[in-house]
Write a protein that binds this DNA or RNA. Structure first.
Lengths: 236, 236
DNA sequence: ACAAAAGTGTTTGGAGTACACCCATGA
DNA sequence: TCATGGGTGTACTCCAAACACTTTTGT
């Protein structure tokens, strides 16, 4: 994992980190907290880094997440790369990169990943001059991110929609360990852009052999408490 | 399109070129015809090239196909990149690359594309020391290709299966301009690894508004001639 | 006439969709 | 007691799958 520690300044990885707050799909963006706050607003960006010379792409993506948040064993799925020569043409973006890597930066091809994390996991920031925040995935379309990160996030969202369609159990990467059917349905609907019928969704859930009903209900809600479920990996 | 003409030796594109011969899915591989024929057999590889410094990835993939075959306007779809540091560790692979690019080659991240072409289009070879041939996609698993091309082709096949599932009209990129329902069904089955029922398939076809029946039948077959159809793009 | 593939309908089961009311709980 | 979401069953539609015989044509 990058033990030679020399950067390869031609290739980077970027992570579209998704979380679910019970209502909306969120994306994790980083922001420099020092310097240049007065200039134009494209200083928000996805977590990312150029790779090390002897580092695998998947490892680089894991490293980026771990360095930023302290988390490990995050679900990651790579999607199609972005390498338009003009993607690194904004002087502000380049200046920032050269400052952080201390390398002369020319053209960079970036290899993007989608990451799924449980939004309630506490994030431990390692970098002092950077803050991270969750943003509604729909609001991001109206924000100005660095590089071509708007486009990459759009593609990442499409990518993860397909993945979740093929492997529905990945939904549980986004939910807390114990969850209600309502939460699962809300997530399902926000991912598929649907509005499922409550009764029909119960039927669907009844067929999921990998869901186990717990002898517990949620707490602290001002109405009838819902049953809690958990996800059981492996097969029945 | 690479008008500065200086190679970027850190990034390449490779094309998994699919064709359909009426029965099997085929993949186009290139082979050096001169030198070293006696050594081990990993001299077959996918069409590919390192990119030019000012060249977009999609353009590089188009260029590779055009340089090799003379064809233009080929359907291309990028899928996930391969960048394991050890993928360029075989000395034979490196030697070949350094000879063709005249560059010192270290680690290379490759950005792979799937290409769909009509197998009856005649391929015009530009490179004198290279031959190209179609290979059954299932046989490739048992062949030794250069680099990690076996793995890339496996992934490319999975990728195009998903794409064809989402956009069935891409099937027609693989068929001749006029085709029979049997040909379409054979292609459908080879892609989906199914064995469709003839009658059910006719029903499915009847719902494809973008298929038009021609007043023509196939010729030269030793049995009842099948009706020909063509694909009509755009909407009704 | 025969071999070989083309072409054609009906039935059945499972999955998705639409739809409305009572229940449990906390405030 | 009331407000809030939790939890439950039935009917209809549509699509996929199973299944066998007649037609056309070339040899």
């Amino acid at each position: 994992m990058g033990n030679e520690n020399s950067y390869n300044p031609h290739i980077s990885v970027d992570c579209v980190v998704f979380g679910f707050d019970g209502e909306k799909l969120k994306v994790l963006l980083t922001e420099r907290t020092i310097e240049e706050r007065t200039e134009l607003t494209n200083n928000k960006k996805m977590p990312g880094s150029v790779i090390f010379n002897d580092e695998d792409l998947d490892d680089a993506a894991s490293r980026v997440l771990n360095e930023l948040t302290g988390l490990k064993n995050i679900y990651l799925s790579q999607f199609k790369s972005f390498g338009n020569p003009s993607r690194t043409s904004n002087p502000r973006d380049i200046h920032w990169l050269e400052k952080t890597t201390r390398l002369k930066i020319g053209r960079i091809v970036t290899v993007p990943y989608v990451a799924l994390i449980k939004i309630d996991r506490k994030i431990v920031l390692n970098a002092a001059d950077t803050s991270v925040n969750w943003y509604d995935v729909n609001e991001i379309a109206h924000m100005h991110l660095a590089f071509d990160h708007n486009e990459i996030i759009r593609n990442g969202l499409e990518h993860i929609r397909h993945r979740l369609d093929l492997e529905p159990h990945l939904l549980f990467e986004l939910l807390p360990r114990k969850f209600t059917i309502s939460q699962l349905r809300a997530l399902y609907d926000v991912v598929n852009q649907t509005r499922s019928d409550v009764r029909n969704f119960q039927k669907k859930v009844a067929q999921m052999t990998y869901l186990v009903m717990l002898e517990e209900v949620e707490e602290g809600v001002p109405h009838r408490a819902a049953r809690l479920y958990k996800y059981k990996r492996k097969n029945p």
